[in-house]
Design a protein around this nucleic acid. Structure first.
Lengths: 337, 337
DNA sequence: TTGAAAGCGCTACCAG
DNA sequence: CTGGTAGCGCTTTCAA
């Protein structure tokens, strides 16, 4: 069986209190006792039970991470960043893929509470914000990544989506495009809305008419991007460029172009968002607005841990700057346009 | 503060023993008491502490999942499958990205023990198998996914790599290729070795000479695949087809071809392995040997949970069949060859 | 510098 | 059918 603190104490001929102290480096223990006990711990390969410690009021050193789908490269990359920084600070992370379904969110939130996680990072949409109330009341810190919930006073890390949209617009207008379209996510996704807003506003500033740009809302999957792009591109006076609110949709657009035998970027320019590994793998490689995923992941963990250690007395909303990664899916519009 | 079993008991005017029984559906409790207590639980939104329950000998309902890198699409998909099946059976999963480093493996294994996980799923390479001994001794079940460790008697779920390699070879020879090359993973990865072996043997059966096929070993990243492919393709009498032991390497090969202005599949055929989302996104889409990731994930969890519930009295090694997914990166060799 | 003992929240056994 | 109670492994006073 597993060794317990009692085994160590017995072996060392001391009380468990003493053993506890050397493990936690507390109290005053003579150097010889300490090293003697440490040796025994080594020898018996004793692993203190976090469970038992947690029960006495200490933490579980476990964080919950809610994302729509861990198999989606964007969230997988977030997970990795969160895992790394968590690990760095001594925390493990539990994955919870919600499929953007409130019922799954609820189930997971309940589970995470029962398991006494120290904090929860949310990177998934939640319709019914009420679900989070109990957590806050119970003093379980929550932090948001790549999501906003203005109604809640919680630490938040996001990219400046408005600027991201603007970056895309500026690039496209700079290239000379005038007939534009956008593939957005569902209307209730605020980040997507902001991207579109930034995109639109920048177009107007460039003298284009926002009524002329067609916006289509899509599900967060390649297929839907392709379908909607196909529609867009089949119209007369089709756009010469499409701004897509995430890489998956951009890939759909790429596939649509291919199916219609439009060359990218000669006949059609495509810009994505996120800069996941997918963007580097398509043909042509995707010009896309990069989110600094690694920094975002690190930052949420920092904020969350700071909060649960009560080292911070106010919540922050940190906004990181996106960056345009120019690859090869966007170029000047065809000259005939 | 969080409600405890005592709060419920007090509120209901019963003992905590009774409350415990209704929560766990044990013992005989009168229907009225039961429903009355349930109501109070509802009302106070009581969440029983898994931590405390675990301390009394029950399980933590948590599994550890070790993979090289959760941000790698292949492992992200495995993680999703494991998460889903785990969730189904009442277990949460903790992610552990090892980067294939034994020191990280060790650190994580120790952490998982301290957190008293009920079982551990391993999908990462481990140099020093000794590290697993303590777990087995402590009766912490381990199951392997997409990995083999013949020296250990543990439940294992793998795809038949030999057949996978054979599938690729058959497809290529069927198409008429005779000058072949392979991009393998590092030599110590047994699954990769098997794939190559299956590939080679099938080639021989088709009358080709195994000495003629060049094998290059690569790190598990696109860049290295590209580099090695570039080397292969720069030789005179370059291969007309490359079999890659995973999709990432295949993408590298695609990029190399592009850089050398070789058309795929007209000038060069490429076959990958895994069928991750990446394979569907490249241009041309990758013909690849598919691992049934979803089934594999489900199956390991089933086996592991069965074991930790002591419902099974022997270990299994289940071998799933891979399948060739024909997309468009492989075709007949150029006629001049 | 060390140890005894009270609890953390819950389960399980035994009595009634 | 219900309640009392002894732990589970550990932390943390408080005394010694």
């Amino acid at each position: 069986m597993k060794a317990t603190i009692y085994d160590i104490a017995r072996e060392a001929g001391v009380s468990i209190a003493t053993v506890s102290q050397v493990i936690n480096g507390k109290g005053k223990i003579s150097e010889e006792r300490r090293s003697e006990i440490m040796q025994i711990i080594e020898r018996l390969n004793y692993q203190p039970s976090v469970i038992a410690a947690a029960l006495t009021g200490k933490k579980t050193y476990t964080l919950g991470l809610l994302v729509p789908d861990i198999s989606n490269p964007f969230f997988a990359e977030i997970a990795r960043a969160v895992e790394d920084q968590g690990h760095q600070l001594g925390y493990s992370v539990m994955i919870c893929s919600t499929d953007n379904k409130d019922e799954r969110v609820e189930r997971y939130l309940s589970l995470l509470q029962q398991k006494s996680v120290d904090g929860i990072i949310i990177g998934t949409g939640i319709e019914n914000k009420e679900m989070l109330k109990p957590l806050l009341e119970r003093d379980i810190p929550i932090a948001l990544i790549a999501r906003e919930m203005p109604s809640l006073d919680v630490n938040t890390v996001v990219v400046d989506d408005f600027i991201g949209g603007a970056l895309a617009a500026r690039h496209l207008t700079g290239l000379g495009h005038a007939r534009l379209a956008v593939l957005a996510e569902e209307a209730r996704v605020s980040s997507s809305r902001e991207r579109v807003r930034g995109f639109m506003q920048t177009l107007e500033e460039a003298g284009l008419n926002r009524e002329d740009v067609i916006v289509r809302h899509c599900d967060y999957v390649v297929e839907d991007g392709k379908r909607k792009a196909l529609e867009l591109l089949s119209t007369s006076g089709r756009p010469t460029a499409i701004f897509c609110c995430n890489d998956l949709l951009a890939i759909g657009a790429l596939q649509a172009a291919k199916e219609l035998e439009l060359r990218v970027p000669e006949d059609l320019s495509v810009i994505g968002f996120d800069d996941t590994i997918l963007a580097s793998v398509t043909d042509p490689p995707l010009t896309t607005v990069a989110q600094p995923i690694g920094s975002m992941g690190n930052k949420v963990v920092d904020l969350l841990v700071q909060e649960l250690k009560k080292e911070a007395d106010f919540k922050q909303r940190v906004v990181l700057r996106p960056e345009l990664v120019v690859r090869r899916s966007a170029a000047e519009p065809p000259s005939g346009s």
